[in-house]
Amino acid sequence: MKIVVIGGTGLIGSQVVARLRERGHETVAASPSTGVDTLTGEGLAPALKGADVVVDVSNSPSFEGGAALDFFTRAARNVTEAERAAGVRHHVALSIVGVDQVPDYGYYRAKVAQEEAVRGGGVPYSIVRATQFFEFVAPVMDMSTQGGEVRLPSLPLRPIASADVAAAVADAAQGAPSNGVRDIAGPEVHRLDRLGEITLAAEPDGRSVVTDEGAGLFAGFPDVLTGDDTAHTAATRYEDWLARH
């Protein structure tokens, strides 16, 4: 199959591309750096020519609600229009577990709008929702650092390795459209402040974790980001991943 991966040079996309190529598929990494701009539509038609499947793992360059909403909705419209013209048979989109249960967070509202655009885009689809990536823990900690303290809420998360996300997305791309949502999550639930402690225990840098329910990116989030018993559980544990990275 010919599979086009939008966002194919990023953290998830580059791994999806590598997995699909290993499995013998003609795989195109589409991104602004390779001449494909989903916001303007530039390069979409030639990239999608002859494509069987399009995978969209692109991300908004801004987490601000309005900017993210514009990015995800405009890109989704342009991509699905180009897919219909090219005869693409399957659209795979990456989203977030619990995304439709956090209406007060603008970025999540933007992702919900993206999902709605995919559902209404006229192309058979599969939506893969993932929990937070292991790779995001350290940046979240950095954003929440004040002096020598990392201030984090006790929100429960069930983080997952990006490699496990890429594997699930690649599997979806090779399968039939589900016209529905599949949740994937890591094997363990950890409080965010505890993830900070685990990280600093593995990589001490002089900082310490302070539990602060009003601090950082996840302050005030409802407890909906771990998924439920229907979520597919990946194998990689956070401590084991830290030891390798």
Rank of each mutant, 00 (worst) to 15 (best):
A163P: 02
V79N: 03
G98Q: 04
V123Q: 04
V210E: 05
G148E: 05
F72A: 04
P153D: 10
V5H: 06
H25D: 14
D205V: 05
K111S: 06
Y125T: 11
V28Q: 14
L195D: 01
V57Q: 03
E83I: 02
V55S: 07
G147P: 09
A173D: 04
S62E: 12
V123K: 05
G186D: 02
G43W: 11
S60G: 06
L69V: 10
P153N: 14
Y105A: 13
H90Y: 10
A30V: 10
T73C: 08
A170D: 07
A30W: 04
S33F: 09
G196Q: 02
V79Q: 07
A82Y: 03
G175K: 10
L195N: 00
R74V: 08
A234F: 03
R19F: 06
V209A: 00
P153E: 14
V210T: 11
P156S: 08
V209D: 00
A68V: 07
R191N: 10
I160E: 00
M143T: 10
E239W: 01
H90I: 07
Q101R: 15
T236C: 02
V118R: 02
V17T: 13
G43I: 06
F133Q: 00
Q174H: 07
M141D: 00
V181E: 12
V55M: 08
V36F: 08
I6R: 04
P103K: 05
A234C: 07
P204S: 02
A185C: 03
V165T: 05
A29R: 12
A215H: 11
R19S: 12
P187M: 01
V17S: 08
E64W: 09
D240Y: 02
D104R: 08
H190M: 01
G43D: 11
D229G: 15
A235W: 07
S58V: 04
V150I: 10
G24A: 14
Y125F: 15
D223I: 09
F133L: 08
P103L: 04
P139V: 01
V137Y: 01
E188R: 04
T27Y: 12
A176F: 11
E213K: 14
G10D: 08
G66E: 15
G24E: 13
A130M: 01
V224H: 03
G121R: 07
Y125L: 11
V17G: 12
D240V: 03
L39R: 06
A67H: 10
H232V: 14
E135C: 01
A173R: 07
P222Q: 07
Y108T: 05
H25W: 14
